[in-house]
Design a protein around this nucleic acid. Structure first.
Length: 87
DNA sequence: CGTATGACGTGCA
DNA sequence: GTGCACGCCATAC
């Protein structure tokens, strides 16, 4: 089987344990494209699966980035996980 | 196949 | 430290 970049990204994000966060760059690298962080955001944006803790993927700047449910919700969830994100 | 889009990253002022 | 512009890749049409 030839999993596409999208499938790999979703798989990686789905493996993120609670209390841990990865940057889009890290996810992209884990998916096989250390330069496809753009596509990672696109994929997560198109994939609103609850089984995928996409809220655990933040920017390298320390900001939460965006979220399908709303950036505010993402920050709220991360804070609940014990992770602080830049406003 | 080519163009347009996007939850980004890095560099420079 | 903050803000702006450019560059990057994958997906959708």
């Amino acid at each position: 089987m030839k999993p596409t970049f999208k499938e790999k990204v979703l798989q990686v994000v789905r493996r993120i344990p609670r209390g841990k966060v990865l940057t889009y760059k890290e996810v992209a690298k884990a998916a096989g494209g250390h330069r496809a962080y753009r596509a990672v955001g696109n994929i997560l944006n198109a994939n609103h699966d609850k089984k995928i803790p996409c809220h655990r993927v933040i920017r390298s700047s320390g900001a939460a980035g965006g979220y399908n449910m709303g950036a505010g919700e993402k920050i709220k969830i991360l804070r609940r996980e014990g992770i602080k994100v830049k406003i």
